[in-house]
Amino acid sequence: MTGTAPRTAPRAAQRQRARAWSPSKGGLLLLAAPLALLALFFVAPLLWVLGQSFAAPAGPLDTYVRIAGDGALRYSLIYTFQTAAIVTVAALVLSYPVAFLISRAQGRWLMIGMVFVLVPFWTSAVIRSYAWLVLLQRRGVVNEMLLALGLIDRPLRLANTDLGTHVAMVQIMLPFMILPLLSAMRGIDLSVLRAAAILGANPWRQFVNVYLPLSMPGVGAGCVLVFISTLGFYITPALLGGSSPMIAVAIEQQVSRLLDWPLASALAAVLLVLTCALFMLYERLNRRLAGAGEAR
């Protein structure tokens, strides 16, 4: 009775593939409407951006050549990367202990922790950037307090500096780091730490050799998420400024002030490709995270 062995004259009708009813046949039908929406209002505009980036009158690669040749734009790209890296590392360092403690909290403490993370997460970036402007401007809260305390005698320049912008961006990005870390840490079975302790590991070794590796998928996912989001950050850098515009701000300036759509599209295409590559990385990490969760 093996699958491919010739059988004694099965009736012709039985050898045809059965035209059977299948419970999951409606899947593609259900997907039609969402896919149509995505095709028209997501995929088409992105393709248009890509097309437009090669549509400069001087030649298909002209815009990219101009970006490479324009010192300010080149610096803007580098600056954006630098900022994304700084914000990611800072967010990770600040988030890890917080996520660890929330992941082990229960009842009321867990709720308080989650409120502290989720409320900023869902508060508009416009509002939060505005708050930072209020804090950091020349006659802002921070300067007034430092003056009142006598620590400085002249207001410091905080807004429009890299430091001020980074401090604000890190605060806005923290929830994007804490949430993936939390979901990874919640999946860690704490009995492995007890096992490590019994085997003679002190708390530091338990952390480095057991806990940290197990939380790595969350670290990876959080870092990619924060990095991607910072690459495309517009609101905070546009409001608070810094030593150079971020890419998103540069794109907006090209379009609304210089009306240079091909150049803006080329910058957007660079951002799009980078984001896509990082998003795929994120998907892989997420899958590994989900895999680890299922194996539990």
Binding site: G232, A264, A268, F279
Partner: peptide, 15 residues
């Protein structure tokens, strides 16, 4: 959700 909205915005606006 992941893609920077500025990219989508400059694609959607002309279309």
């Amino acid at each position: 959700l992941i893609l920077p909205q500025i990219v989508l915005a400059i694609g959607l606006f002309p279309l």
